[in-house]
């Protein structure tokens, strides 16, 4: 009896909080047919916003991937004083409000001394332009790649790499031939998570970019701006596009989730059903 009550409560909660709202957006978008959707999507502003979003995301993901792999290797394979602090610091971005992220970057790279002034004098514009947006996106998605590959790196163990060294392989060779293949699915998983996060960033980019239409406006900023201007069709359309990307990345991430995690949970699930009828 309780079983059914719990099931209904859970499903109703999810229905009203998650399913209905998301479904409604899709319905509203296509409510008047495909044509208005197409016009909205192909407007120069929309296309540009999409391009901006994509380029910012790609740069951010690249940077974080390199950083992520390096840091993961550092954390897992080496010991040094301050290792725990480094580990804790990596998780900091998760706890910081995106608006605060934007503020922080403005304070350092904006028109304030000392760094901002120096940049200004050399004609380097960070805030209110793409580099700033990339920085903001990098900040918020910093831990994702590291945390995706660190556990797999841990489980892999250093043995294979050490074997490679004894056989004469250099550091880079070992990395390319042994380490990288070992972590490739976890890396893909981390990259997908990072990309999804980067594509969806709103608050930090809103502060840092100034949201100049046609210049520094990402797709998420586009949604807000169109909504503020009562162009709900465009807003909804862009929102649906972003939602679809989100769902896609969700499915992709689920597929790629490091097999150790998947097989472990499968093993545990099987074990708990089999336990009852062991011989």
């Amino acid at each position: 009896m309780t079983k059914y009550v719990l099931r209904i409560v859970a499903l109703l909660y999810l229905l009203f909080l998650l399913v209905l709202p998301v479904g409604l957006i899709g319905w509203r978008t296509f409510q008047h047919g495909l044509a208005p959707v197409w016009t909205a999507l192909s407007s120069p502003e929309a296309v540009h916003a999409f391009a901006v979003t994509l380029s910012v995301a790609v740069w951010a993901v690249l940077a974080n991937t390199v950083f992520g792999v390096g840091t993961a290797l550092l954390l897992v394979r080496h010991r040094f004083p301050g290792k725990r602090i480094l580990g804790a610091l990596i998780d900091v971005p998760v706890a910081v409000s995106p608006v605060v992220v934007g503020l922080a970057l403005i304070l350092v790279y904006g028109r304030f001394e000392p760094v901002g002034g120096w940049l200004r004098r050399h004609g380097l514009q960070i805030i209110f332009s793409l580099p700033g947006m990339v920085l903001a996106t990098v900040f918020v998605s910093l831990p994702l790649v590291v945390r995706a590959i660190a556990p797999v790196l841990q489980e892999l163990g250093a043995d294979q790499e050490q074997a490679a060294h004894t056989l004469g392989a250099g550091r880079w060779q070992t990395f390319r031939r042994i380490t990288l293949p070992g972590i490739r699915w976890a890396l893909a998983y981390g990259v997908v998570l990072c990309l999804a996060r980067a594509l969806g960033e709103f608050g930090a980019v809103a502060v840092v970019s100034g949201g100049l239409v046609g210049q520094t406006q990402t797709l998420t900023l586009f949604v807000k701006e169109r909504f503020d201007n009562f162009d709900s069709t465009a807003a909804f359309t862009a929102a649906t596009a972003l939602a679809l990307i989100a769902v896609l990345s969700l499915l992709l991430a689920k597929l790629l989730r490091p097999s150790t995690e998947r097989s472990r949970s499968r093993v545990v699930a099987e074990a708990s059903t089999v336990k009852g009828d062991n011989h």
Binding site: L199, G203, T220, V223, A235, A243
Partner: peptide, 15 residues
């Protein structure tokens, strides 16, 4: 369940 993780916050707001 993971959708709120993946969905941009502004889209969540709109939704």
């Amino acid at each position: 369940i993971d959708l709120p993780f993946a969905l941009p916050t502004i889209v969540a707001g709109l939704v």
